[in-house]
Computed example of a mutant assay.
Amino acid sequence: MTEDRPAVLTETDGDIWRITLDRPETGNALTPALAAELAAALAARPERTRVVLLLANGPRFCVGGDVRSFAGADDPGAFVGQLAHDWHEVVRTVLSCPVPVVAGVQGAVAGAGVGLVGACDLVVCARTTTIRPAYGAIGFSPDGGTSWALARSLGAPRALDLMLTNGSLTAAEAHLTGLVARLVEDDELRAATEQVAREIAAGPIRAMVRTRALVRGAATRTFGEQLDDEAQLIAESAADPEGREGVRAFVEKRAPDFRSAR
């Protein structure tokens, strides 16, 4: 990769803010530059866009950290620790994004790439994709939210089995356990992911973000706390221009125009 070549590409496509990892020759391996550029791309989302679409060029979505850079570091602990810190800011930004985040993944998802996928709201996965934590192979413990994403989707016993034995998941297994939302044929991935993003962009974005907060928090709240949160957020949704438009459209027997509900 030349010094002036970006690791991340961005593009506005109507309602969609498309972010594409573009280091295919390295499997989109995580480096300080890629982390910084992805953080900047998320921060630069135009306010008028209603969905973030995360894609990757090349046969592999993200193979995790660039292990060669770890080997060349004078102080591996400091280097990897700083990279993990920077990557965690990226993952936090995805989790708190004010619009839904849709990802399309293919080929290989490994290491910190697993945590990134787990932070997205809806993941479309090519059928031949393999998902592997891979940390144990180099003597590392997980980062990037990978342990959170796997424990959340697989449960602790299966997550530990996967990580302690340096195992992998097929796309079908990842779909069955809920790590990814949809499976498609490899040659349909880009089109299918784009279509999902467009469908979501036409919907009530702020209500979707409230829904995300409820779903993400359900595992750590009591039932009573969840009911309280639901009551608060549905009231906010009803008062929101989106909710008002949705109710009017239902009464008037027409399709709602959530894009105009500001």
Rank of each mutant, 00 (worst) to 15 (best):
R210M: 07
A112E: 00
A149F: 07
G118K: 02
D143Q: 13
R18S: 15
V114C: 13
G246F: 11
D187I: 12
A29Q: 13
I19G: 06
H88I: 05
V247W: 09
C120D: 00
F70R: 10
A219Q: 14
D121R: 01
H88D: 14
R158P: 06
S147L: 12
G139L: 03
R210L: 05
C120N: 09
A239I: 08
E252L: 01
P6L: 15
S69V: 08
A181G: 02
A197D: 00
A151K: 13
L160V: 12
A103M: 03
D13A: 08
L21K: 11
A235F: 12
A159L: 09
R254V: 04
V94S: 06
V99P: 04
A202L: 12
P24E: 00
A112Y: 00
V209C: 02
A218G: 08
R60G: 01
Q195Y: 11
S69H: 10
L9K: 12
V94T: 06
V63D: 12
A43V: 04
L169R: 09
Q195D: 13
A112K: 06
V196I: 14
P256G: 02
G145W: 10
P133F: 08
T26A: 02
A218C: 11
S168G: 14
A249M: 05
L214A: 02
L154E: 04
E236S: 03
A156L: 15
A7V: 14
D22H: 15
A134W: 12
E194F: 04
V184T: 15
C120Y: 08
T20I: 06
A119E: 02
L53Q: 13
L30S: 07
V52W: 09
R254C: 03
A159K: 03
V90Y: 05
A41G: 01
G246N: 08
T165H: 15
E11R: 15
P256Q: 02
A202T: 01
T128R: 10
D74H: 10
D15L: 15
R216C: 07
R152G: 14
R262I: 06
I16E: 04
A39T: 02
W148G: 11
R127L: 14
G145I: 10
A151F: 11
V123N: 07
V180W: 14
L122M: 07
R182W: 14
G139W: 04
A126I: 01
R45Y: 01
A35I: 05
T31K: 02
G113S: 00
T128V: 04
G217H: 05
V105E: 09
P59Y: 00
R244M: 12
P256K: 02
A171V: 10
A238R: 13
A151S: 15
D13P: 01
A134M: 13
G64L: 00
A137R: 05
G217R: 00
L214Q: 03
E225G: 07
W87G: 02
A44Y: 07
V251D: 13
N166D: 13
C62Y: 06
D121H: 03
L233I: 08
L21I: 15
A249P: 00
R158D: 15
V180E: 07
V8F: 07
A156R: 09
G203D: 13
R221G: 08
G115S: 10
I131W: 08
V8T: 08
E37A: 01
P100M: 05
C62E: 06
A71E: 11
M1W: 09
E185H: 08
K253A: 14
E185S: 13
R5G: 06
D187A: 14
V91H: 06
A41C: 05
G155K: 04
